[in-house]
């Protein structure tokens, strides 16, 4: 449940370990039976009967609103003038401090985490499948998938050969740091590996919510038009890398690719832009080099 957004009060946000089949209610941290989503594809990794009794999360991290990471102000503290308490506190402080904790946790383990953001349908999952298949023997990769519903993407990742956790937000429109915290503890990524977070398809909300990632990677498909970055400036400004996907479709489109690149640069002058096709493989070498470079830096 996201206190920051409040959008999933009624819906249950859950986390599914695709390989084992265990499901955890993110609000309580307790194992639960998956409700509703029992459509398993050919890559079904769930055992019927949902045996997951051994995956309780007893980490001692609190889910209530009191864990601000700073002291509560009392009326006789040094912040006060009469009955006025100066807080100077960021409203997203709770998420941000959890994100910093994630960041420190990852740094301590020399694990690199990227937050993949885009509109729905830009090809994030396909790109990850391809990356896992091509690089999986060289670099350890694990994935945290975020969708409102279904285990489909998590299952695709597992089929490609990487451990994955599927977070279902219910009605939530973005992933938050506490979800990532729980997913990371379940994934237990090893040193020198990469965690990809595939955020909920949404170019608006994820920009507000730090997850503790090393960088945001914004993925754009050539079918989305030249001015997408201008329409969603907050997100494209926050990204360190913009991947332009599906370039194999360019002969069928009227898209001016130079104008697209210019739009991205107008919003974020220093952004790295890589054009590729997850389907044909064109341009992937540059993406892989970018990853390798960051991985090398993370281990220094």
């Amino acid at each position: 449940m996201c206190v920051d957004c409040g959008c999933s009060d009624q819906a249950k946000a859950t986390m599914t370990n695709i390989k084992i089949g265990s499901v955890v209610d993110l609000a309580t941290g307790l194992a639960t039976l998956a409700q509703g989503d029992h459509r398993h594809g050919p890559n079904d990794h769930h055992e019927h009967g949902h045996e997951h009794g051994h995956h309780h999360h007893d980490h001692g991290h609190s889910h209530d609103a009191h864990d601000h990471g700073h002291q509560h102000d009392h009326p006789h503290g040094d912040h006060n003038h009469g009955n006025i308490v100066s807080l100077q506190q960021s409203i997203l402080a709770k998420n941000d401090s959890l994100a910093e904790r994630n960041r420190a946790w990852l740094a301590g383990r020399e694990v690199l985490m990227f937050n993949l953001v885009s509109s729905p349908g830009s090809g994030k999952t396909s790109l990850l499948e391809r990356t896992i298949r091509d690089l999986g023997s060289e670099i350890g990769i694990t994935v945290i998938e975020g969708d409102q519903a279904t285990l489909n993407d998590g299952a695709r990742i597992a089929a490609a050969g990487a451990p994955s956790i599927q977070v279902n937000t219910g009605t939530g429109c973005h992933l938050e740091a506490d979800m990532i915290d729980q997913a990371l503890r379940e994934l237990k990524p090893r040193p020198g590996t990469v965690v990809f977070v595939e955020n909920v398809g949404n170019l608006v909300c994820p920009s507000l919510f730090d997850l503790g990632e090393r960088a945001k990677v914004a993925i754009l498909s050539v079918t989305e038009g030249e001015d997408k970055p201008l329409k969603y400036p907050h997100m494209f400004k926050a990204a360190e890398l913009v991947i332009v996907n599906k370039i194999d479709l360019l002969p069928h489109l009227d898209l001016d690719i130079d104008e697209l690149v210019a739009s991205a640069r107008a919003v974020n002058p220093n952004v790295v832009i890589i054009q590729l096709s997850a389907k044909t493989g064109e341009g992937l070498a540059e993406w892989y080099d970018w990853l390798r470079q960051h991985l090398a830096e993370a281990q220094e």
């Binding site: 509560h72 807080l87 997203l92």
Partner: peptide, 16 residues
Amino acid sequence: HELGITRNIVSIVADH
């Protein structure tokens, strides 16, 4: 996210 943000504001201030 104005509703959720507002909930957060109320929650933080209530705590303090």
